[in-house]
């Protein structure tokens, strides 16, 4: 096999290994055990606040209210789906056991832009995000290494 091909394959293999490592290597969970209470208001087509940040392990209680029409609160990854009528507050409680960004979405059709009524719960430390950024760096560097050392210079 020509040495250039061997070199390319070697670079690709290394890049792949780093990729897998970055995405799957277990990271120590920084568990807090605080409790957090939030009030979250919904109106067409917005959650207020639009972003909630907690620490992994936190006990989170959210008091939901609606200020115009019936909305719903669906939280990605937590199997929470609570219908909220205007004038009647509802409470949900859960433990933020996974890190990452989880979107909360309106779960009851509330008008034209209903599918885009979205907010974010960020459970820190946001490891998936840091892994993604690391992967981004790895993608760039591995491609540059590949191109610099693996390209046919002629």
């Amino acid at each position: 096999m020509p040495p250039l091909i061997v070199k390319r394959r070697l670079i690709l293999l290394c890049a792949l290994l780093v990729f897998v490592a970055v995405w799957f290597v277990p990271l120590p969970a920084l568990r807090a055990s605080g409790t957090h209470e939030f009030s979250l208001d919904m109106r067409q087509f917005e959650f207020t606040p639009g972003r909630i940040e907690v620490q992994q392990g936190d006990q989170v209680t959210i008091t939901l209210s609606s200020s115009d029409v019936v909305h719903g609160f669906y939280l990605d990854g937590y199997q929470i789906n609570q219908r909220v009528e205007p004038g009647i507050t509802r409470q949900i409680t859960f433990t933020a056991d996974q890190t990452g960004k989880f979107r909360y979405r309106c779960a009851v059709s509330c008008g034209a832009l209903h599918p885009f009524m979205i907010g974010e719960l960020v459970v820190n430390n946001n490891f998936p995000f840091w892994r993604a950024l690391t992967l981004l760096g790895v993608s760039l560097i591995s491609t540059l290494v590949y191109l610099y050392f693996g390209a046919n210079k002629a």
Partner: peptide
């Protein structure tokens, strides 16, 4: 009450509904 009054008069009658 919750369906028809609370929006203005408040969920617990505080006069503080969202409307």
């Amino acid at each position: 009450y919750a369906q028809n009054c609370a929006a203005c008069h408040g969920e617990t009658g505080g006069g503080d509904g969202f409307m």
